[in-house]
Design a binder for these strands. Structure first.
Length: 278
DNA sequence: CCCCAGTCCTGCGGGC
DNA sequence: TGCCCGCAGGACTGGG
């Protein structure tokens, strides 16, 4: 479930390991069903070969490898994808490989157990079209209370499912939505239209606080152990979770029992006592 | 336009 | 012990 903190951790790990280097080749490595990689291998290879990595960025939950040719390799890990510079957890689910020249670490790998992710090459124009502010909202680390109110203030949805809308705010997923609302003291069932200015402000502060903290702890590696950083090491923010996956345990703020409900087919965790509906 | 259910996919754990 | 089902939740699609 890589969300913003996990993808940001991958991005930093790749940057530290490979920095600015020349691409030697891009290969599809797949012993099972192929994942979504575009364009087709020969064309992909031709477009990236010999290019230099000019920047490593993040677009919401995607890792972006910018090349000096003005093309961007966009890796979208979805549920179980990992971007690695060391041996992957298994060879079977290794999906793609970018070979580099001139350094001790000479590969960036894409590994994906479930294979829901994708690796795509875009020109700068295509990238701006696809990931502009109309398609992808402001980054959750940078979003302001005014952005939140403008983008969600008139939505008829409940606040928790609304936080998962990447057009409104980029980077928040199911896990961090629950954590953020707990810190903000806002009930997940609260309607966006009922949110006060103070609550949009509290939500903004909580969003920045939780996500910055999660980045410092290198993301959350849950029970299935799938998520890893670029060096195949676990994150540790799961030990700091306030509500996620903690149904029936004590709220760290008020000791009431944490509840689990389902909203738009997804689990929500919250404290019914200290997260107010009003 | 807005929003939600259904879809893809694999591995794991519960129930029988 | 083995099988089947449900669940996990990224982003996209189709339709109400």
């Amino acid at each position: 479930m890589p969300e913003l903190p996990e993808v940001e951790t991958m991005r930093r790990g790749i940057l530290a390991a490979v920095g600015s280097r020349v691409v030697d080749a891009a290969k599809i490595r797949c012993s099972r069903k192929p994942i979504d990689i575009s364009p087709a291998p020969a064309k992909f290879r031709h477009r990236v070969r010999g290019a230099t990595i000019s920047a490593l960025a993040r677009a919401g939950k995607r890792v972006v490898i910018w090349l000096d040719t003005d093309d961007a390799i966009v890796i979208e890990p979805r549920m179980t994808g990992l971007v690695l510079v060391v041996d992957p957890p298994t060879q079977a689910h290794l999906r793609w490989r970018l070979s580099l020249t001139g350094g001790p670490i000479d590969e960036v790998l894409y590994w994906d157990r479930r294979g829901l992710g994708n690796v795509r090459l875009f020109s700068r124009e295509e990238f701006c079209e696809r990931f502009g502010l109309e398609k992808l909202g402001p980054d959750a680390l940078e979003i302001t209370a005014d952005d939140f109110r403008t983008r969600l203030g008139s939505s008829r949805r409940e606040i928790k499912p609304a936080l998962l809308d990447q057009k409104a705010v980029a980077g928040i997923g199911n896990l961090y939505a629950s954590e953020i609302l707990h810190v903000a003291g806002i009930h997940p069932l609260r309607k966006c239209t009922a949110m006060t200015t103070r609550q949009w402000q509290a939500l903004t502060a909580a969003t920045h606080m939780v996500l910055e903290e999660a980045v410092r702890y290198e993301g959350s590696t849950l029970g299935d152990g799938t998520y890893r950083n670029a060096l195949n090491e676990q994150g540790s923010y799961q030990n700091k979770h306030r509500v996620y996956n903690r149904a029936d345990q004590a709220c760290p703020r008020c000791s009431a029992k944490i509840k689990r409900i389902v909203q738009t087919q997804r689990s929500t965790y919250f404290c019914g006592k200290c997260q107010r509906r009003t």
